[in-house]
Design a protein around this nucleic acid. Structure first.
Lengths: 221, 221
DNA sequence: CGCCAATGTGTACGGATGTTCTTATCGCAT
DNA sequence: ATGCGATAAGAACATCCGTACACATTGGCG
């Protein structure tokens, strides 16, 4: 399995050499011991993290390997193990970066929203997302599942949930914000998995109905 | 990583020999070529599937291997590859079995429920589940994530969602049943991941509020 | 200018895994 | 009873993976 990805890996590794600007002395004439030119590359760590997020989104936590990430970031294998003490460390830092980016993006999405009607509209667009949103959602669920198994990642999911709830709490009560958050999570998952896409109006109605709560302080029912 | 599981694997493999009823001729005197007695074991396939579900729940799709499942089912490695053409096939069939069992269990859970009040109570217990529920929920999310990556599994998640929605539709409109299903999914995930457990009353209130919909046939809002 | 610590790069190794294959065994139809 | 096909059992193989390591390079500081 995964042969295509491996091919891509190999190709990326091979493709790197020809396009690099060759040193004054022609290295092509001495194929033996042809060590690649060293590159000055600060913030290579950050680039590796981005590549790791790409790989995580594509093949999941299960399929993510040092070599895949290295190929994606266009760096040699040793560079990944140099910058990150272990594969788990790499994944954890990548997920941390993801939560950071995602929180900011979500906050920005809700920044200009004033009315609950507009909020419902925006959140509907959030659930039915384009390819970029799909990637994000995949990463999110990948993180959730990883956190389910590795308590060290719980802090990240907790932070993400807290941020999401508090961002939504600007429009409803905290309890209802939590409910809305759970609803969104479920709807996003279903949207990702559904063989036939749900009608936009339906999800919009579900969000809107959840949004205008009946406070029902005491006489609930 | 996973050393403990591997130890368990090895131990299970070693522990098998001494307890087996030995043949008339004492095999202990001839340690060389000591092949284990062949066991007559119909429905070994089903037992392997159960073992696979256990392993899936414990270590996830990522960590599930032929050898782990074989050790869990107390069968030799070759037996797993004999009954299932590939690891993906094994996982798919195991998940299919899971959906079957889970659908039945969920239907049975709602079977005796008549009032929406009682339903809210039952669903609350479903969200805050004991260890058995936790295992099921983990398997469910494991399946969801696997289906996210493997379209062949979509049929299973679709069946599960459809069944769940129709079971809930006995108490509300189909649209609201879908909304409630999404809410449950999200709340279950949050319950699994939360570092501090949510108050039971809160989730009950969230379910109850979602349950009594304002039909609002035309003049919504 | 000259060093050195940090960073880049390629390779090696032990181990785990999926899958295949050979051999042995036994239920069962004839 | 007797063959035979289905299944059990264990070993083997090629591959991939995480990590460690040895060596090369160079930016920046004295």
């Amino acid at each position: 399995m995964c042969t295509d990805v491996l091919i891509a890996c190999t190709l990326a590794h091979m493709a790197r050499s020809p396009q690099s600007p060759q040193s004054p002395d022609d290295p092509g004439s001495e194929p033996q011991g042809a060590r690649r030119a060293r590159r000055f590359d600060p913030e290579r760590g950050a680039r590796i993290l981005d590549a790791a997020l790409d790989v995580l989104a594509e093949v999941g936590v299960a399929g993510t390997t040092h070599r895949l990430v290295a190929a994606r970031a266009d760096v040699p294998l040793g560079s990944v193990t140099y910058h990150f003490s272990s594969l788990a460390d790499l994944q954890a830092q990548a997920f941390a970066r993801y939560v950071e980016l995602q929180s900011a993006q979500f906050g920005q999405l809700l920044a200009g929203v004033e009315t609950t009607e507009r909020l419902a509209e925006v959140l509907t667009g959030f659930v039915h997302g384009g390819p970029a949103r799909r990637r994000s959602a995949r990463l999110g669920f990948e993180l959730h599942l990883a956190a389910l198994r590795d308590p060290a990642l719980r802090a990240l999911t907790q932070a993400w949930t807290d941020h999401s709830r508090s961002a939504l709490a600007r429009f409803t009560s905290p309890d209802n914000a939590a409910r809305l958050d759970a609803l969104l999570e479920g709807m996003i998952m279903h949207a990702l998995l559904a063989t036939v896409e749900e009608a936009r109006a339906t999800t919009r109605a579900a969000i809107a109905r959840t949004l205008d709560e009946a406070p029902a302080t005491k006489k609930g029912r």
